[in-house]
């Protein structure tokens, strides 16, 4: 067994832009543009970045819920990019996803028992009574009770729904959970309940998480290592301690300094970035951050910086740190 559960190499996802009178392809949106990372068994890797930087596209591509344009994804020693649709479906027993609001995609006419049972039915696991027993167990694991099994999605609060989303992902006893903004829609008091639950489950069940969020404090709290994305690329990746105490990429620094902290005496120096994030349909040349970077040089405008280890597994893609 290798230390790494998931290895992603040179992942790309380009969406065609169609237009013109003939509806032909007139360009591409480079939603994910050459991303590489690995997730170790039992760890939580966080992915942060601003809206549209490609976090969800990355997460979904890993499970091939959307087909990657290029790249290699190795999960538990198996190259999943080479699997047939049927083999991939079986593989997904071990890789599950939790969404921001899992109920947006669920049938409002099914009760919770039916919703939680469904993955077992799809994979033809257990008898009807065994499945019902598993549903009860999972409800208790996530802090709900069998009393909730007969209720319908709309009868739950946001925090309870997220518990159900997590329970559903856990039904098949997976190895990896991709959690795409699992707490972004929740109030802080409920957010902390769900984060604690996720940490407890990880310890008990030996889960590995890819945790996607745009809130840096949340990602720092839950993750062992964090990758920062900008315009379809990972610009920095290191341990969460290093990222916050010693950020290297100018974008990471700006992002960290922009987060308001609930301390009125906090007098950090603010780097306020000018302008908006450029469009991934027309990304800047060279380093895609060069249009907003306070340290931009000629080289940044023309040459894409390599994503390299600058020591102790601290990766950064920036010409300032060339070796």
């Amino acid at each position: 067994m290798t230390e790494e559960l998931l290895v992603v190499k040179n992942l790309k996802k380009y969406y065609p832009i169609t237009g013109g009178v003939l509806g032909g392809e007139v360009g591409v949106v480079k939603a994910v543009d050459d991303v590489s990372f690995a997730v170790k068994r039992g760890e939580t890797l966080g992915l942060v970045g601003e809206s549209g930087c490609g976090k969800s596209t990355t997460g979904r591509s890993l499970l091939r819920l959307i087909e990657p344009t290029a790249g290699e994804i190795t999960f538990d020693g198996v190259n999943v990019t080479a699997l047939s649709t049927d083999e991939m479906r079986k593989m997904r027993r071990d890789m599950q996803i939790v969404f921001q609001d899992p109920f947006a995609s669920l049938n409002p006419r099914h009760n919770i028992e039916k919703i939680l049972e469904e993955p077992l039915v799809v994979h033809k696991i257990g008898t009807s009574s065994e499945r019902k027993k598993r549903v009860q167990e999972m409800l208790e694991v996530v802090g709900l009770s069998s009393y909730h099994a007969r209720r319908y999605p709309h009868q739950f609060s946001g925090g309870q729904r997220q518990r159900i989303g997590i329970a559903r992902a856990l039904m098949l006893n997976p190895k990896l959970i991709v959690a795409d903004e699992p707490v972004s829609a929740l109030d802080v008091s409920i957010q902390s309940q769900v984060l604690n639950l996720m940490q407890d489950l990880q310890k008990e069940m030996g889960l590995t998480y890819l945790f996607i969020a745009h809130d840096l404090s949340v990602v720092r709290h839950i993750s062992d290592r964090v990758g920062v994305m900008y315009l379809g690329r990972i610009v920095e990746l290191t341990t969460s301690g290093q990222l916050y105490s010693n950020p290297l990429h100018p974008y990471t620094k700006a992002l960290l300094s922009a987060v308001p902290t609930p301390d009125p005496d906090d007098v950090r120096e603010r780097v306020i970035l000018q302008g908006d994030v450029p469009s991934p349909a027309n990304p800047p040349s060279g380093c895609t951050f060069h249009t907003r970077c306070p340290h931009v040089t000629e080289e940044c405008r023309s040459t894409r910086p390599a994503f390299q280890d600058v020591g102790d597994g601290h990766f950064v893609a920036c010409h300032l740190y060339k070796q």
């Binding site: 404090s217 709290h221 916050y244 960290l256």
Partner: peptide
């Protein structure tokens, strides 16, 4: 309840 940016809990 808030996770902190500056320190790990």
């Amino acid at each position: 309840s808030l996770p902190k940016l500056e320190e790990s809990q």
